[in-house]
């Protein structure tokens, strides 16, 4: 039963990773791509971690997997802000909805 539940969570997490990768390829600039990386990836990883935690051999191992997810969540969120502020300082400004990018969404 635990294996089945764990596999279910892992299977549920995979589409999020796929959507995140598609977003990374399709979104037009660094800022929009960061949205895909911080939000969708983390939920996908969370579901996979939950699936692995359910299948873990002991509570300590399960908690360790959840702790890893929490730390990645923290690092990814902080990293996204650092990348965005660096891009804002040194790179192009964020695209506005009225400034069409010909490659966006292709």
């Amino acid at each position: 039963m635990r294996e089945l539940l764990g596999a279910g969570f892992i299977l549920l997490g995979i589409p999020f990773f796929i959507a995140s990768t598609v977003g990374l390829l399709r979104f037009p600039d660094v800022y929009t791509r960061l949205h895909a990386l911080t939000k969708v990836d983390n939920v996908g990883l969370g579901l996979i971690c939950l699936g692995l935690a359910v299948q873990a051999s002991s509570i300590a191992v399960a908690l360790k997997i959840v702790l890893i997810w929490g730390l990645i969540l923290l690092a990814s969120s902080t990293g996204a802000t650092l990348i965005a502020s660096s891009a804002l300082r040194h790179g192009p400004p964020p695209l506005r909805s009225d400034s069409d990018d010909s490659h966006a969404g292709r």
Partner: peptide, 8 residues
């Protein structure tokens, strides 16, 4: 995540 995935 659902909103961004839907948009992507």
């Amino acid at each position: 995540a659902l909103i961004v995935a839907q948009l992507a």
